[in-house]
Amino acid sequence: MSEDSTLVQERTEQETKESAEQGRTWQPIILGILCNWCSYAGADLAGSSRLQYPETVRIIRVPCSGRVDPAFVLKAFRKGFDGVMVLGCHPGDCHYAKGNYYARRRIALLQDLLKALGLPEERFHFEWVSASEGNRFAELVQEFTEQIRRLGPFKGVVAVENKSS
């Protein structure tokens, strides 16, 4: 059995309705894929420092940005996430010495693929965030959320007229 194909969409619709009722603006749903050693620790620091950032991001912790298969990102878009961010250790700081260097090439090509397929590149964000950069993590989520909010809800990987049912 495959996972939930329209959960993200359903949730977004429901939240849009709720926010409209409460007079709030629409909240995007963002997938954050974070490296355990730097970026996830950075997010943790943001939390323990009680920094405020939008509750738009759903975080998945991975051992290293080198673990991020570009298909994770493609699948997230196929499932309807409004934005995807991948965060890893700064070059030279990888816990496994060079995982993030491999990630760097894959992500760079993934950006080209998204462009070639005509997906809005602004919906994908890649950044280096260290364990001490809690502040930076909070800012990043803030900025990326603003950016996605400007773009509006993601309409899906295929153009509307080709959508199945």
Binding site: S2, E3, S5, P70, A71, L74, K75, R78, L109, L110, D112, L113, A116, L117, G156, V157, V158, N162, K163, S164
Partner: peptide, 26 residues
């Protein structure tokens, strides 16, 4: 994990072709 469903619908076809293109990059 199930990366893409077997049914030939545009979204799943997109997932197949996009991932295949990524796998063949370089």
């Amino acid at each position: 994990p199930k990366w893409t469903a077997k049914k030939a619908v545009p979204e799943e076809n997109w997932m197949f072709h996009a991932t295949r293109a990524m796998h063949l990059a370089g």
